[in-house]
Write a protein that binds this DNA or RNA. Structure first.
Lengths: 196, 196
DNA sequence: ATAATTATATGATACCGATCATGCTAAAGC
DNA sequence: GCTTTAGCATGATCGGTATCATATAATTAT
């Protein structure tokens, strides 16, 4: 039925977006092509007009997730002092909302243990994404004149990812919140930010 | 064929052990009952004489993993000064060997993102296990007279888990090792241990 | 020796997933 | 108005999985 020229491109984008959310929520193995397409009002058959395989889709989706994240990071920094911007990103990352919304959050935390089991195409996208994010973090620490900004960034990013992983594992809500709270204070102190 | 009285118990144990390794290596969804049993020279049918369901097995396997870990922790502390013992556990955790042997390593790092998607029975086992491990960590920090040992323990455990997660995600071996190295130095410094 | 029992094996069922060959439909181009 | 075509739908295949009913063989109890 001859849609306009960009129709297919838009559909493609929507599939990737939906996949990015579903993969973070349920893991790369538990999302079926059929259920994914049906969420967009489409059927499973058309899928292979857009992607060569499911692995292809997963790889694209991963890049999409990291783009989302970089945008969130930039949004925190925009229109604020670097220190304040960094603090707001830390608060955002270690928030209850982020804990409870895996589908929209950091792919490293959402897919931590899946990465190592993924096909190489997907792993490469991950590697690039992680690098970009820690580099961005490092840049801000440089502006703040922290010594050894790369090392501090690596350490702090690790703590943030680990704390979110553990907070999501804990079913006891109070305990889980305490872990996030602790991490928030720790991380901010370690990067030399006042605790709010 | 009427084996001796403990035969079934031993088989049960072996299944759990094998499952604990396979689950850490490949994730809870990618281990089939059939392939698991065949690794022990058995077939898939007998499985349900030992477990009510796969979920049951997974839950048992998780507890088994944490018991393994507690033993590793105790082994590091045994026959050494608390400070030295702690340092050796940190070195062990953030080692290349641990990175490359997910099947025998820390379940939190191996199954990070799987936990949140697991059935409640499994999540409860996880919760208990994490609590025990951080408590054990806290105890050592108390002996070392660290201020706020609980908070420091939570922070340091989070960094260790996060660093291992990221190190495993990175395919570039040099970069991955650098991340582990950085984390080792950071963590030891933060708990007041000399860097070796 | 025979019967009962126990750990495991065999085989079947039912379901779900990725992938692919082919069909349909409506607009584009003539 | 007819043909072509792009985007998607239908329907089938194939492989994998958990689960369960039933069979088998080796012991032990009688």
């Amino acid at each position: 039925m001859r849609y306009d020229t960009e129709h297919k491109q838009r559909t493609h984008e929507k599939v990737v977006q939906e996949a990015a959310n579903a993969i973070r929520q349920h893991g790369p193995d538990k999302i079926g092509i059929a259920s994914l397409m049906s969420k967009l009002g489409l059927t499973h058959g058309g899928f292979y007009a857009h992607f060569n395989s499911k692995d292809d889709l997963v790889a694209e989706a991963i890049s999409h997730m990291f783009e989302d994240r970089m945008e969130a990071f930039r949004k925190c920094l925009a229109g604020a002092e670097p220190a304040e911007g960094l603090a707001s990103y830390i608060d955002l990352y270690l928030s209850i909302r982020h804990r409870d919304r895996r589908d929209k959050g950091c792919p490293v935390a959402s897919l931590a243990s899946d990465i190592a089991r993924m096909p190489l195409v997907a792993r490469k996208r991950f590697e690039v994404g992680i690098q970009h994010l820690t580099d961005a973090f490092t840049d801000v620490l440089k502006i703040l004149d922290k010594p050894q900004p790369e090392i501090l960034a690596a350490s702090v990013v690790a703590e943030m990812v680990g704390a979110m992983t553990i907070a999501r594992a804990i079913t006891n809500s109070d305990l889980s919140e305490r872990i996030l709270d602790t991490a928030r204070r720790n991380v901010k102190e370690r990067v030399g930010l006042a605790n709010t």
